[in-house]
């Protein structure tokens, strides 16, 4: 494991901590897209099927369980917790996320490395993760007030993807990692989707202003 990979995973973990902090202590999920959160549950469920078939390390297994558990927990809070669910910005969370699932299924059936259940589902999870942030970004654009925790959450999620790109560059150069078009291109697309958000996040941070995305 290289430093970029570890930092990427830790940033991912931290993003979830920040979101849980908002949900559990502020008791609010305002500005958080339930659709994006549901897509992440599907991403982790389809990607981590190899929990049952292959062992990599204690770290790998533990992180997979944490991502699965927390993503399901977050969706539970947003849907069923009697206080939290009332703060959900339902009317603004309008992105047609079924379309993203359909698109990823079709793409995974067409473009994959091997045609077996685990490989196609794994590929599907990469395509879906690449676009899963879209409902969240659309919701942010509609939000008049983006609170600090929500902004930080999305920033950390984007930082995690950017660090994974550095991790691939490192593995390619230092560990004889072969070309892996499917995860790399999906990862590049995923990171590129954050470009606009990064720009406004950093700008607001530099000017010490409240984060606001232009509509």
């Amino acid at each position: 494991m290289n430093l970029f990979r570890l930092l990427g995973d830790m940033t991912h973990l931290l993003s979830i901590v920040v979101l849980l902090l908002k949900i559990r202590t502020v008791k609010s999920c305002a500005g958080i897209s339930l659709k994006t959160q549901e897509l992440y549950v599907i991403v982790f469920l389809t990607r981590y099927l190899d929990l049952f078939t292959k062992y990599y390390s204690v770290y790998n297994t533990a992180m997979k369980l944490v991502f699965l558990g927390t993503s399901i927990g977050i969706v539970w809070y947003m849907r069923y917790h009697k206080v939290v669910k009332q703060t959900y910005s339902k009317d603004e969370d309008t992105f047609k996320h079924y379309f993203l699932i359909l698109l990823s299924i079709i793409l995974a059936l067409l473009i994959h490395r091997a045609f077996d259940v685990i490989e196609v589902l794994w590929t599907f999870s990469l395509y879906l993760e690449a676009v899963a942030i879209l409902p969240q970004l659309v919701l942010l654009q509609k939000s008049r007030n983006i609170d600090t925790l929500t902004g930080d959450y999305v920033f950390l999620l984007g930082a995690y993807r950017a660090l994974y790109i550095l991790n691939w560059v490192y593995r390619f150069l230092m560990e004889n990692h072969k070309f892996r078009w499917i995860p790399w291109i999906s990862g590049l697309v995923q990171t590129a989707l954050y470009a606009d958000f990064f720009y406004y996040y950093i700008k607001s941070w530099k000017n010490r202003e409240k984060l606001k995305l232009p509509a």
Binding site: R5, D9, H12, D50, K54, Y56, N60, M63, K64, F67, W122, Y164, N167, R171, H177, K178, R180, P183
Partner: peptide
Amino acid sequence: KEQPQSHDEL
């Protein structure tokens, strides 16, 4: 054989 190179990522 070389498959785990990206499957070991999260």
